[in-house]
Computed example of a mutant assay.
Amino acid sequence: MSSSPVGLHRVLAPAGVLPQAAERLDARPELWPDEVRITVERLNLDAASYRQLADTHGGDGAAIRRAVLDIVATRGKMQNPVTGSGGMLVGVVDEVGPGSPLGVRPGDRVATLVSLTLTPLRITDELKDWDGKSEQVPARGHAILFARSIVAKLPDDLKPELSLAVMDVCGAPALTARVVRSYVDKGTKPVVSVIGGAGKSGSLSLAAARAAGAARTIGVVPVESERERLTAAGLADAVALADARDPVALAEAVQAAGGPADITVVCVDVPGCEHGAVLSTAAGGTVIFFSMATSFSAAALGAEGLAADVTMLVGNGYVPGHAEYAMELLRAEPGVRGLFEGRLAED
């Protein structure tokens, strides 16, 4: 069998599916000609996945660590069987197959911009340096990239942990900016509401919306401490306090902050926010779902049940130039950088 640019040759079961949908991948270190092997330094677990693991194990770090090790050992990749999501990683290029088109060389420190849910992965250190208490996971092992994988070299002016945190969510601000510009190009400066505005993807999306020409930005957060953080960061024209799982309360909070929103960006890592996102969006508006906790059937049926004329987009994590754009926002917006560095310090 020849290698496949999308990794079909690494699928062990079931036959005929792409690596992301596979139950098990072949994570052997030996390379096919168009592959790249990465020596892993750190994983960044998807926020929805980590929250689910933490909730299931009552915050017990040792139990969370064992769960992650079991997933990787069983599946040959990091894909939470409950949320279906994974994360990404940073590491150093170890070997490059002669047919690889990725443009990296041995010794390059890189971040993978494709999900761990489709990346063959083997852990060799039992995650001994991770206490299980944060999304960022010091790790040793190797990962395999395919010909159609996406990878970015880490910038020299930022700490790897900071770069990893930004690149993990870089699709959100890029797509937010694209959608805002589409409104502006048609002569409308939209009101943009970001649910989960104090988080990683949320803060970048607020900055992107403002830079792209939004008339007003609204950040929605669930607790007072996050409202204080986001207000201090200065990324939103208004900060609303609401539980996004309460549709009426969310819609009222957004309305009071200057809504309804023409564009709603959902960046929270908990389920049950679909109806509130739809209800707080103006007729003819757009809802962008970036959370892996989203139930897309709930979103579609909720919009139908509310007779809501909204366009719903799924943020797939990739927009051309997304990593570079997110890094530019981080460097240009002290508020974004402050929020990221604050969260890393807490971890």
Rank of each mutant, 00 (worst) to 15 (best):
S2F: 11
P5F: 14
H9Q: 15
Q20T: 13
A22S: 14
L31D: 05
L31H: 11
V36Q: 05
V36Y: 05
Y50D: 07
R51G: 13
L53T: 04
G59N: 08
G61T: 05
A63Y: 02
A67C: 11
V68G: 06
V68T: 04
G76W: 03
M78E: 11
M78V: 11
L89G: 02
G99T: 09
S100P: 06
P101Y: 09
L102P: 04
P106V: 08
S115I: 11
K128D: 09
K133P: 00
A147G: 01
S149I: 05
V151E: 07
K153D: 02
D156A: 15
L158G: 00
P160K: 01
M167T: 00
A174Y: 12
A174N: 10
K186F: 00
K186R: 07
A207F: 08
A209N: 02
G213E: 01
I218C: 07
E224M: 07
R229W: 04
L230M: 08
L235H: 01
A236M: 12
D237G: 13
L241W: 01
A249K: 09
T264C: 09
V270D: 07
E274G: 12
S280E: 02
S280C: 13
V287C: 13
A293G: 02
A293F: 11
A307D: 08
A308P: 03
M312N: 10
V314Y: 13
Y318A: 15
E328Q: 14
E346A: 15
E346R: 14
